[in-house]
């Protein structure tokens, strides 16, 4: 489980905190989504999980231990993160790239173990990129690259998985595919936390939703409770209607046009 307790992050030289007393949990077996407008602190939350944001108050916990107590490798064996952006500079095959996900499990020397190979093949399969295994990373489309990065995180075999906007560049089929994969990973016992702008997909797939607004948690709970018109309108500062989709039963959100 990933848990933040009154987490406050303030970058040096900035006049207001990037995150202010954020308390939320991403439990095992659940898909938790973190949504909010641009600049509301979602990516800062992810960076804080990696120990790469200046935490000035509160704490982050992973499986009932404070995150700072973990060594770097130990944390990476329990928490895999797919960041928003990553530009590879040296091309390599997809399989070699996914195998880098085994890094936290490997020492400085020593051969590739059977466990490594199994994990890599399973990750390639689960992220649906097995067919790309021998392709080079500089020949992939944007959508393929996203899925390959997810595969690399899966190869870490960490019980907690965090993804920062994994559906950027994905078409609707691959978006659905991605969220179905995340939901299935959660069902199989992982704690999955996804940062996303795809509110309708979040509404359909997530078990819990955290809504960030200017660094504070405006709401946290089940999608039906969080994704209400009056809350979202206030946070996003945009008129919208939320209806209940008759086909899937999830809240469905339609932003309105201000000008015709």
């Amino acid at each position: 489980m990933i848990e933040s307790r009154e987490l406050t992050v303030r970058y040096p030289g900035s006049d207001r905190p990037a995150l202010s007393e954020v308390t939320l949990q991403a439990a095992r077996g659940q898909l938790t989504a973190l949504v909010g407008p641009n600049g509301s602190g979602k990516s800062t939350f992810v960076r804080a999980l990696l120990g790469r944001a200046p935490v000035t108050g509160g704490s982050l916990r992973l499986d009932d231990r404070s995150l700072v107590e973990y060594g770097d490798r130990e944390r990476a064996r329990r928490l895999a993160v797919v960041l928003q952006r990553e530009e590879p500079v040296f091309p390599m095959t997809v399989r070699d790239y996914v195998a880098l996900g085994r890094h936290p499990w490997r020492g400085a020397w020593g051969p590739v173990t059977a466990a490594d190979t199994t994990a890599v093949e399973a990750a390639l399969h689960d992220a649906d990129v097995a067919a790309l295994a021998t392709r080079r990373t500089d020949t992939l489309s944007g959508g393929e690259w996203q899925r390959v990065r997810i595969a690399r995180a899966l190869a870490q075999e960490a019980p907690a998985l965090v993804l920062d906007e994994p559906t950027t560049f994905l078409d609707i089929a691959h978006e659905m595919d991605c969220f179905e994969l995340l939901a299935s990973l959660a069902r199989h016992g992982r704690a999955v936390l996804v940062v996303s702008h795809q509110l309708n997909l979040v509404a359909r797939f997530a078990d819990r939703v955290g809504l960030l607004s200017s660094g504070t948690l405006a709401a946290f709970g089940e999608p039906g409770a969080v994704m209400r018109g009056e809350i979202l309108e206030q946070v996003y500062r945009w008129p919208l209607v939320v209806s209940r989709d008759p086909a899937v039963g999830a809240p469905t959100l339609v932003p309105l046009r201000r000008h015709r």
Binding site: V89, L100, H103
Partner: peptide, 17 residues
């Protein structure tokens, strides 16, 4: 091996321990 991972960039390297 650390260099392999560092070459992916700071944040990604941190996510890999």
């Amino acid at each position: 091996r650390s260099l392999d991972v560092i070459a992916l960039g700071g944040d990604t390297a941190a996510s890999l321990g």
